[in-house]
Amino acid sequence: MASAVTGNGLPTGCKIFTTMPDILFIPEFIFGGLTWCLVASTRVEPANPQGWVMFVSIFCFVITTLWFLIFLCGGNQSSVWLGLDVAYHFIAVLFYLSSSVALAYVTLFFKAALPSGLDEVFKIYQENVAAVVMSYVATLLYFLHAIFSALRWKSS
């Protein structure tokens, strides 16, 4: 990937589509949105862990969208943005990791209670498995973004 950045180390405008880690915004949108949609489409039982998953996926989707728009419009020219970029992505990693583990636990619990012969319950279980996979992929993407943002912060 090219390293076309401004003087403070952060890209603006269309340069965010050519620099690492900013190119990761796109897959973060995709996998975070898929996690959100898959959890929202299933029966939310038990409510507490899956409510946390919904909060994390919506929160990260909205904040990543705002972050992306700030970078796209060039509002990131202050020197504080390098540190904020690293901090946000590490917080997103912690949130997504905790919600991924909770969602995986609920899915395993749901599988153990899965009665045989109920297609509707099996469909919900399959959607939960897909949501777990998407959640862990989103966690990995945010982790990579955080690592590359930290490297960019350190080198500036």
Results as ranks from 00 to 15, higher is better:
Ala2Pro: 12
Thr6Gln: 12
Gly7Cys: 05
Gly7Phe: 07
Asn8Asp: 10
Leu10Ala: 05
Pro11Ala: 11
Thr12Ser: 13
Cys14Glu: 15
Cys14Trp: 09
Ile16His: 01
Ile16Leu: 15
Phe17Ala: 08
Thr19Pro: 06
Pro21Arg: 00
Asp22Glu: 12
Asp22Leu: 03
Ile23Asn: 02
Leu24Ile: 03
Leu24Phe: 07
Ile26His: 06
Ile26Cys: 05
Pro27Tyr: 01
Glu28Arg: 04
Glu28Thr: 08
Glu28Lys: 06
Glu28Phe: 00
Phe29His: 00
Ile30Cys: 04
Leu34Ser: 09
Leu34Trp: 09
Leu34Cys: 13
Trp36Val: 03
Trp36Thr: 06
Trp36Arg: 04
Cys37Phe: 12
Val39Gln: 08
Val39Ser: 05
Ala40Arg: 10
Ser41Gln: 13
Ser41Lys: 12
Thr42Ser: 11
Arg43Asp: 15
Arg43His: 14
Arg43Cys: 12
Val44Cys: 11
Pro46Val: 08
Ala47Val: 11
Gln50Arg: 14
Gly51Met: 04
Val53Pro: 03
Met54Tyr: 03
Phe55His: 09
Phe55Lys: 08
Ser57Met: 05
Ile58Ala: 15
Phe59Trp: 09
Val62Thr: 05
Ile63Lys: 02
Ile63Gln: 05
Thr64Asp: 05
Thr64Gly: 08
Thr65Ser: 14
Thr65Val: 13
Thr65Gly: 11
Leu66Gly: 13
Trp67His: 13
Ile70Met: 10
Phe71Ala: 14
Phe71Asp: 13
Leu72Ile: 05
Leu72Phe: 09
Gly75Trp: 04
Gly75Glu: 08
Asn76Val: 08
Asn76Phe: 02
Gln77Trp: 06
Ser79His: 10
Ser79Arg: 09
Val80Gln: 10
Val80Gly: 15
Trp81Leu: 11
Trp81Ser: 10
Leu82Cys: 11
Gly83Trp: 05
Leu84Ile: 13
Asp85Trp: 00
Asp85Ser: 13
Val86Lys: 00
Tyr88His: 09
His89Ser: 04
Phe90Val: 07
Ile91Lys: 01
Ile91Cys: 11
Ile91Arg: 01
Ala92Gly: 06
Ala92Leu: 01
Ala92Gln: 01
Val93Asn: 01
Val93Pro: 01
Leu94Gln: 02
Leu94Gly: 10
Phe95Gln: 03
Phe95Asp: 04
Leu97Met: 12
Val101His: 03
Ala102Thr: 02
Leu103Phe: 04
Ala104Gly: 07
Val106Met: 08
Phe109Asn: 12
Ala112His: 10
Leu114Lys: 11
Ser116Gln: 15
Ser116Trp: 07
Gly117Ile: 07
Asp119Glu: 12
Glu120Tyr: 11
Phe122His: 15
Phe122Ala: 15
Ile124Glu: 12
Glu127Arg: 10
Glu127His: 12
Val129Pro: 05
Val129His: 02
Val129Ser: 05
Val129Met: 09
Val132Leu: 13
Val132Ile: 09
Val133Lys: 01
Val133Ser: 03
Ser135Ala: 11
Tyr136Met: 12
Val137Ile: 13
Ala138His: 03
Ala138Lys: 00
Thr139Pro: 07
Leu141Asn: 01
Tyr142Ala: 10
Tyr142Pro: 04
Tyr142Glu: 06
Tyr142Arg: 05
Leu144Trp: 00
Ala146Phe: 02
Phe148Pro: 03
Phe148Cys: 09
Ser149Glu: 01
Ala150His: 04
Ala150Ile: 03
Leu151Gly: 11
Arg152Asn: 15
Arg152Leu: 13
Trp153Thr: 13
Trp153Arg: 15
Lys154Thr: 15
Lys154Tyr: 10
Ser155Leu: 11
Ser156Leu: 07
